[in-house]
Simulated assay, not measured.
Amino acid sequence: MKLAEQIRIQIKKLPEGKTFGYADLGIAKEDYQTAAKVLERLQAKDVIKKISKGIFYIPQQTVFGELKPDYNEQLRPYLFEKGKRIAYITGAYLYNQLNLTTQMAFRIKIASRGKRIFINRGAVKADAVKSYAEVTDSNYELLGFLDTFKDIRKISDSNTANSVKLLSGRIEQLSEARREEMIKYALLYPPRVRALLGAVLENQKTSSKGVKKLKKSLNPLTTIKVGLKKSDLPTINNWNIK
Results as ranks from 00 to 15, higher is better:
Y140L: 07
K165T: 11
Y93F: 10
Q43C: 08
Q10C: 10
K45A: 14
K2T: 01
S138T: 15
V129L: 01
D151H: 14
A23E: 14
T223Q: 13
L146I: 09
I155V: 11
E172Q: 00
D31R: 14
R107E: 04
P220D: 14
K53I: 12
T136C: 06
L100I: 02
N159K: 06
Y185A: 02
T90K: 00
R41H: 04
P59V: 10
L146C: 00
L214N: 06
F80L: 06
A128I: 07
L100R: 02
N203L: 00
Y132D: 13
S138F: 14
N237R: 14
E73P: 04
T101M: 02
Q103G: 02
P69M: 03
T160P: 09
R179Y: 11
K184D: 04
V200C: 02
Q204N: 03
N159Q: 06
K216D: 14
K130T: 15
D46I: 03
A44C: 01
R8K: 13
T160A: 11
R153L: 11
L228Y: 03
K130W: 12
A92Y: 11
S52T: 09
D147T: 04
L233P: 00
T34S: 15
E181A: 07
K154N: 13
K53H: 15
S217R: 06
S175K: 05
A195Y: 13
I9P: 01
I155G: 00
A199N: 05
K49Q: 13
I55G: 03
I224Q: 05
I183P: 01
L3T: 04
R179M: 09
L75K: 06
S207A: 14
Y57G: 01
P191H: 15
K209T: 15
K109T: 09
Y78H: 12
S168P: 00
K12M: 10
E66P: 01
D232P: 00
F56G: 05
A92Q: 13
L25H: 04
S168Q: 02
L166G: 00
Y132T: 09
N237V: 12
A92H: 12
A161T: 05
Y140C: 06
I117R: 04
P59M: 11
G198C: 06
T148P: 00
